[in-house]
């Protein structure tokens, strides 16, 4: 599903440069739910951004679903992002002047689907996250948890191979966090591959595998016994 080999990335800071990722090797199989952990500055977000093609690595190989991701031009990267990846952000990143349904349907617009089809698929996914009744509300009229669920519906809409979540619960309280995690676990049960960046232990324990980063290298990579979020909800 996902193969990463000796990935390096540094950011220029003034005259010098900050070496953020110092050779990362990572294999993720289809259907896995992986938590990437680490303190701030460990490089976990950078790793996720490179996996998400939001950022480019300096060196190393990255193969996603047997497609080498390298030297992409903007257009190709856009197509790959649309086809392979669904994003969930800490700050939701919904477009504030579009209602829930329009936000969910936006990736489908960039897939070139017809309006009717977009509406149907959008509604289907909103129903899946339990927000069909809120389809015509603007993000400002939704709670944090609801916003994140709209964002998840949007990430799912294009039926991506891989879901990438960057601190998906970072802006939510514990109960809402667990609700979101429960939902992500459900998606994983249905076979979605999910990568979650987090620095919260309890969230990490709800995944099936935990990868710990420190100073740009992988310290630990182990399977864990998944804690079901449903028991807290």
């Amino acid at each position: 599903m996902l193969k990463i080999n000796q990935l390096h990335k540094s950011y220029p800071i003034g005259d010098s440069s900050l070496h953020v990722l110092k050779g990362i090797d990572l294999d993720v199989e289809s259907g896995e739910m992986v938590a990437i952990m680490g303190s701030s500055g460990s490089g976990k977000s950078t790793l996720l951004n490179i996996i998400g093609m939001l950022d480019e690595a300096d060196s190393g190989d990255y193969i996603l679903d047997d497609v080498p991701i390298k030297n992409l031009n903007e257009k190709k990267a856009a197509i790959y992002r649309n086809k392979f990846l669904g994003f969930i952000f800490q700050s939701f990143n919904l477009i504030n002047y579009k209602n829930a349904l329009e936000n969910v349907a936006l990736p489908l617009y960039y897939q070139g689907l017809k309006r009717k089809e977009r509406q149907e698929k959008g509604k289907f996914h909103l129903k899946k996250v339990g927000l069909l009744d809120w389809a015509h509300h603007l993000p400002s009229e939704l709670s944090g948890g609801q916003k994140q669920r709209v964002a998840i519906a949007r990430a799912l809409a294009a039926n991506p191979k891989l879901l990438l979540a960057d601190e998906p619960t970072g802006a939510l309280d514990t109960t809402t966090s667990y609700e979101i995690m429960e939902f992500l676990q459900q998606l994983n049960d249905e076979g979605k591959t999910i990568l979650i960046v987090t620095h919260e232990e309890d969230i990490a324990e709800m995944c099936k595998r935990v990868v710990r980063l420190r100073d740009g290298i992988i310290m630990e990579d182990k399977k864990v016994n998944q804690v079901r979020a449903s028991q807290y909800v």
């Binding site: 998400g52 903007e74 257009k75 856009a78 994003f87 936006l106 960039y110 949007r154 294009a158």
Partner: peptide, 16 residues
Amino acid sequence: TKEIGIRKALGAPPRK
């Protein structure tokens, strides 16, 4: 800018 970022993350090509 942020909206542009979101759209790009969702797969909008630069031309659009």
